[in-house]
Design a protein around this nucleic acid. Sequence first.
DNA 1: GCCTATAAATGGAACGTTCCAATAAATCAA
DNA 2: TTGATTTATTGGAACGTTCCATTTATAGGC
Lengths: 350, 350
Amino acid sequence: MASRAKATILDIAREAGVSKSTVSLVLQGSGLIRPETAVKVRKAIEDVGYVYNRGAANLRKAHSNVIGMVINDLTNPFFAELAVGMERVFQAAGIVPFIANTAENPVRQEEVLKSLMEQGVAGLIVSPARGTTPGAFRRIEAAGVPVVFAMRRLPESRIPAIAPDNHRGAYLATQHLIGKGHRRLAFFGGSSDLVVYHDRLGGFIEACETLGIPAANRTIVEGETSRRGGMACLETALAAAEPPTAALCFNDAVAFGVMLALRKRGLEAGADFAVVGFDDVAEAEHYMPALTSVAVDTAGLGERAAHVMLKMIQSRTTRAEDHIGAVSLAVRESCGPDRNARGAGMGDAA
Amino acid sequence: MASRAKATILDIAREAGVSKSTVSLVLQGSGLIRPETAVKVRKAIEDVGYVYNRGAANLRKAHSNVIGMVINDLTNPFFAELAVGMERVFQAAGIVPFIANTAENPVRQEEVLKSLMEQGVAGLIVSPARGTTPGAFRRIEAAGVPVVFAMRRLPESRIPAIAPDNHRGAYLATQHLIGKGHRRLAFFGGSSDLVVYHDRLGGFIEACETLGIPAANRTIVEGETSRRGGMACLETALAAAEPPTAALCFNDAVAFGVMLALRKRGLEAGADFAVVGFDDVAEAEHYMPALTSVAVDTAGLGERAAHVMLKMIQSRTTRAEDHIGAVSLAVRESCGPDRNARGAGMGDAA
DNA sequence: GCCTATAAATGGAACGTTCCAATAAATCAA
DNA sequence: TTGATTTATTGGAACGTTCCATTTATAGGC
């Protein structure tokens, strides 16, 4: 039924023959009201088709239970996995997080953050869009709303970040490639306006230097962090006089693109050109050939970020420790057989 | 700057030496205020670090500009694409949609819907979770909040739905398989508590009947709508005495699973067993072998759904026409060469 | 019986906006 | 000058909650 105008606690009160205060108490599950009264009120709530007005409540309480998750690219399954990890934690805490997508666009991000703030969120978990300006979170910090960065962070910011050990992951992957006998390596994808980029590229370079790959034998191609970007990177690199024989990719999307481009050229990932991805999304394992990738425990990091956020809200602070998650290399087929023992043909797949 | 307590329009008013009403007018971009006054007020807004309290505003206006998108499985790129299509439209309209994931869980969905309603959304676009009870939207309808279903709909519901022509899509795909010479067909994945399932299965069956495939030669295996589900379906089907030689899958995720399971058995999708997917997600084209799939123009349907929603909100109605989107079959490699001309070897791919 | 302690329910003042009706200031017609 | 008209600005009452301070009812102790 429900009349046209929305029902309020006053309507409930009238219906149940009690005061609005009593209804409010029932709504909050207070133990102060007599059970029979509570039952009566709850029946009235049902009868009038009441829906709680959180906006009005927050006006008094100034303590919303809404948490915003701002994601830079929802179509990248990596971020979807991250979001799902966080949701698990929030769900257990009885909180419904609202997800918003920025599509890697700082302007859009600005709008999204503004909207979330206006909505009165209790906290924000953000994977900042590429090209986010350093001041983008100043107002939010000033407002005292806790923020944590997930997966990505900003150059100089006091906002806590939850991210994998990108440097080490890249180092491990590069080391693996060099161990396989590759001497001309490439780093594909990403752009230097991302802190993660420098972390990962840094690990790549450090491994090269430590293990004796001179700068002349290193190809670095920036590019979109997408399949398309990966395809472009490979084309660029293969056009060189002495092209690389292996590549560490900024992320799995780029790696898939590289593998695709290889196939287009009649080359086989693994046998003809080694490719390693980063993030280890679910598909990596099922790709053909299966993609070697740096596993970062995406969902685990999402859970961690959510926990940190919960703790910050609870302790009313805007500060927290960074968390650097452990990484490991999931070795599969895409980085191919050992080059030192070449000519042997098939077999061997890590 | 910004003091501990949140700034309100009264603080701005004091700072700018005007009344709160004037500030409110400026905030709403009313043309009634003198430009110099507006400038002064805007400066004050900046100075005090004000953030608009939409909850308080909605209390008066009863007209929020928040739209909720409730998605049953964000990790399925298909739904992520849908969400992105909608976002494009809403962004142009200056609206920030909030996305919430139900993880295919009706209980979770209930919570999510409740939370969104309490937040005072202006409208809801929902892809209902599997197993949603018919009454799940009764309260929302009673509250007069416009709802549209995207991709999925409920058995008996007056809520408008935006979905592809599932029946026809399945018919086309099945027809194609039969045309290729297959005589024992399977339908893999999905479950009968989904309306879409019946639509797609219906198309499959109609094609079989029309084109002379007797019921005895049809295998129908329900299963999870995921890669895992697809793998299970194939195993079940191949265990039969006279196993099928081709399958139409409920969606692409299932199809990928089937292809994976084929590979595990040393069989090749296309050559040894034909598989066709549904939805045509971005990866389908890039898979190995490339997946034949029913293309539904996901992003387009998302945009359509968003437009319908906008129109409903604008015209204050809760009714709208269903929209059935056109479909087409994207023929690729996974359905293999023509069986009638078998033994010829390679060649032919759509 | 009265007084006190406890339990249960209540009225009213906030919270931060919007919007109507009203005021004040400026302009114009006579 | 006076009154009418337009242009800018303003006070105050709402919106639907929460929560404090009270009130009212119930029980217990003597």
